[in-house]
Nucleic acid binder design. Structure first.
Lengths: 212, 212
DNA sequence: CCTACCGATCGGTAGG
DNA sequence: CCTACCGATCGGTAGG
């Protein structure tokens, strides 16, 4: 791993933990083991480094989202999508903390970037939800776009703070327990009882096929 | 409003918008219209000012929560509680942003404070949920503590970012629309169809009584 | 509540 | 990738 990658890694970690204003270039350079001036050879400014860190995360989704929506075009699209989003942030909770901080720190910059990178895909998924409302599998009173926004909130802020707030649950407050409840809430607030029952049948069928 | 209150107000606004590290004492003093040195006459240090800002918020809940739980001891306890929490943060979204930042910036300090101030009440409400699971009004598979934590997440991060992310919904992305869907999600993921129906009946009865 | 001032640290540059 | 250095700003103090 070259110095540029090491710097990106350390910056991700420190920006996530202490914020942009709370992290100095010296602190990042120390973590990498170089001098601050050397860091500014790889990235022209603190702001440029910060943008590079954020680009890494948003770039991932520009690549993964379309692939995922096509691949999981079948019945379990929703499950697959939710699982992938959860997996990405649980894999490295710093990603969740960074996105959360960014929305707080630079609301207008982030609004523009999300409108460009995420909104188009949200519209597609909202379309699927509306189709499900037609077949009776999805609750009529759900507001597709607002629902999606809240599920993203649930995932990101839930995972960003899981380490800290899990302990409020007592000893058993691990991330897995929080994730399980999070997925349950996302599903039961979207699907009708009929929709949930159909999904269970589909899963049972699949297991039978796999067993043959 | 004296200078101390003005300082608390300005600090709340600026810490919420730009974070602790991103806000200088001069910036706060400028907003109040005094000198930085004068600010440090009212609060011994930046850290002390920050603590005072946070204390204001947590103190509110130490007072309101017990009163609310006793007063709304009837059937609509859940509705009343959720509404009050939403109202408090919608009233001033900076409160939501501050709490969110605090959990990110000082995880261990915040864990300790929440364990002391919020955890006991969460245990009480979780007890009510378990009782509802016994009567069939609340879904058996809900995890009471994890559910409550996620609803708080939903409210706080939803409201903290409503201004920014509402626009992702298009023109109609106002806070009210987000709040309505938020409350729908919280209820439908907690109550069974039977529980929801019973709540509707109770509301109809109340309206009849009021009409008489 | 002010002026005046402190050492420390900030992001960034020059030059090699 | 380094040493050396820049002006600006930081949180905080002295003294009135």
């Amino acid at each position: 791993m070259d110095a540029r990658e090491q710097t990106l890694d350390a910056a991700t970690r420190l920006f996530a933990a202490q914020g942009y204003g709370g992290t100095s270039l010296s602190a990042i350079a120390d973590a990498v083991g170089i001098r601050k001036a050397s860091l500014l050879y790889h990235f022209p400014s603190k702001d440029a480094l910060h943008r590079a860190v954020l680009d890494q995360i948003l770039e991932h989704w520009s690549q993964v989202l379309p692939r995922l929506l096509e691949a999981a075009a079948g019945d379990d699209r929703f499950d697959a999508l939710l699982h992938e989003v959860v997996r990405f942030f649980v894999d490295d909770p710093d990603r969740a903390r960074l996105v959360l901080r960014e929305v707080l720190d630079r609301p207008d910059v982030m609004r523009a970037r999300l409108a460009e990178a995420v909104a188009p895909w949200m519209a597609v998924i909202a379309g699927y939800i509306r189709k499900g409302q037609g077949t009776g599998e999805i609750r009529e009173d759900a507001d597709p776009e607002a629902y999606l926004l809240h599920v993203i909130h649930l995932v990101i802020s839930g995972i960003a703070t899981a380490d800290t707030l899990g302990s409020v649950l007592g000893e058993g407050g691990d991330t897995q327990r929080l994730v399980r409840e999070l997925e349950r809430m996302a599903k039961t607030s979207l699907f009708t009882e009929e929709g949930l029952a159909r999904a269970r049948e589909r899963r049972a069928d699949k297991e039978d096929e796999a067993a043959e």
